[in-house]
């Protein structure tokens, strides 16, 4: 496993931890598990801290072991494919949201009053979650391409 693949795993874990924490704190949990919100958010904080520590450890290790190549053209290609899949996801959500806003505007004109099909802050949550999920898309695409070659 190359350092770049390890970084992709760390990126996946840390992004999932931030996403989970955001959902728990900003949106809330469904009623059956609502009582465990503190324990769940504590787990996500620990997961993020663990990923951060491993990332720092790898960076320190990499600084001392400079003999080997850290990143090459294949890593750059895989990174680009990861960014591409994240971009496609973000653009799909943004276009859908733009369409939703246009429809809201059209409905408002037809009704003769300001009508929102959803509360504006929901749009903000959707955008924040979209960017976090895009990070998950990017990391999983990279890991899929690294793992597909079947060599660790």
């Amino acid at each position: 496993m190359t350092n770049q693949e390890r970084y992709a795993w760390i990126s996946l874990v840390s992004t999932l931890a931030i996403l989970g924490l955001y959902i728990v704190l900003a949106i809330g949990l469904p009623e059956p598990i609502e009582d465990h919100a503190d324990a769940i958010s504590d787990f996500f904080v620990k997961a993020f801290g663990f990923a951060l520590l491993v990332r720092i450890g790898l960076a320190v290790y990499g600084a001392f072991e400079k003999r080997r190549v850290e990143k090459d053209e294949r890593d750059a290609l895989i990174e680009l494919k990861g960014y591409r899949s994240a971009y496609f996801f973000v653009i799909t959500v943004v276009v859908t949201l733009a369409g939703h806003l246009l429809i809201s505007d059209f409905v408002s004109d037809a009704a003769g009053a300001r009508v929102f099909l959803s509360a504006p802050f929901v749009t903000l949550h959707v955008l924040v979650i979209t960017f976090l999920v895009a990070g998950v898309f990017e990391a999983t695409t990279k890991l899929f391409l690294y793992r597909k070659d079947g060599l660790s």
């Binding site: 090459d72 294949r74 060599l151």
Partner: peptide, 23 residues
């Protein structure tokens, strides 16, 4: 070979297995 040509060992493996075309 990877050290000589400036890539990672995984890239040499991918080239050998014809899963990646080098520049």
């Amino acid at each position: 070979l990877a050290d000589k040509i400036g890539v990672t060992r995984q890239t040499v493996h991918a080239i050998e297995a014809a899963k990646y075309s080098p520049s």
